[in-house]
Simulated scan of single mutants.
Amino acid sequence: MKYIRKSQERGSVDLGWLQSKHSFSFGSYYDPKHMGVSALRVINDDMVMPGKGFGTHGHRDMEIISYVMQGALKHEDSEGNKHTVPAGDVQRMSAGSGVMHSEYNASNTDQVKFLQIWIQPNKMGIKPSYEQKSIAQNGPLTPLLTPEGGENALSINQDASLSRLVLNAQQTFMLASGKQIGYLHIVKGSVMVDGKEFAAGDAFAVDPATELNLEATAELEALWFELPADF
């Protein structure tokens, strides 16, 4: 493994209305040892209190993905998109040449928990775009975003892909990074890899041409990124 990121070592933010864990340097949290992996720049594990959220703000030249784990997000942007993103849905916004947006907890009674993921694109200044989809699990490893989209996956403006890995307790599975850098972020449960156990919030990266034999030590949900090796 070329890089290991443990949950308890992540940056921590508590603003009352927002509790967040930052895998990589973001906002007021800065650590030069944790600036991202390849084109992956942000994984923020956010919990937003009822009725609260991120007011209107701008982005450009970034692929922004929301992976909702609990509750629902209310999204509005300057391109006219107004959507609710429930748990189980995946959302991708390409900020491109510039977009203003807001994200709020859609509930006035329940918390929303989601992963905010940023990936740098390989095309700058493009027209902003938006996609959202509920993607059913199909086998242990299901594509969520790919460069071309299709086959029920969303598209992304980068030579990168994101898949959801789901394993039952004691189930084994082999992951291969192929020609790209692999990065596994544990959403829930736990898994044993090369004699090391990883639990919710933990993550690690591997070089291209690496094969990983995984054994879930508890019911597992994880995100598997395949990222450019030459970024």
Rank of each mutant, 00 (worst) to 15 (best):
Y3R: 14
R5T: 11
K6L: 11
K6P: 06
K6I: 11
S7A: 15
Q8M: 14
Q8S: 12
G11V: 10
L15T: 10
G16N: 09
L18H: 04
L18K: 10
S20H: 11
H22T: 07
S25N: 05
G27E: 10
S28M: 14
Y29A: 03
Y29D: 01
Y30E: 11
H34A: 15
H34S: 14
H34L: 15
G36A: 02
V42H: 11
I43V: 08
D45Y: 11
M47D: 04
P50R: 08
G51E: 07
G51C: 11
T56Y: 13
R60P: 05
M62Q: 13
E63V: 03
I64L: 06
V68Y: 06
V68Q: 05
V68I: 07
D77G: 08
E79N: 08
E79W: 10
K82C: 08
K82R: 14
H83V: 12
H83S: 13
A87S: 06
V90A: 10
R92V: 10
R92I: 13
M93L: 09
M93K: 03
S94F: 06
S94D: 03
A95V: 07
G96S: 01
M100L: 12
M100H: 12
S102F: 07
S107I: 00
S107E: 01
S107A: 08
T109E: 14
T109W: 12
D110C: 01
Q111E: 12
Q111G: 04
V112H: 02
K113P: 04
K113D: 05
F114L: 06
F114I: 00
L115K: 04
K123F: 07
K123E: 15
K123Y: 11
M124F: 12
K127G: 04
K127T: 15
E131N: 13
K133N: 06
P140Y: 04
P140H: 10
P140L: 11
T142C: 03
P143G: 00
P147V: 01
E148M: 10
G150A: 08
E151R: 00
I156Q: 02
I156M: 03
Q158M: 02
D159C: 05
R164F: 04
V166E: 15
N168A: 14
A169W: 09
Q170H: 15
T172G: 11
T172E: 15
F173P: 01
M174Q: 15
L175Q: 02
A176P: 05
S177V: 02
S177Y: 08
V187L: 13
K188F: 08
K188V: 06
G189V: 07
S190W: 12
D194V: 01
G195Y: 03
K196A: 13
K196I: 12
K196G: 10
E197C: 05
A199K: 15
A200I: 02
F204C: 08
V206E: 01
P208S: 10
P208C: 10
A209S: 11
N213W: 09
L214N: 01
A216P: 02
A216K: 03
L220N: 00
L223G: 04
L223H: 07
W224F: 01
W224R: 04
F225E: 00
E226S: 06
P228C: 04
F231C: 04
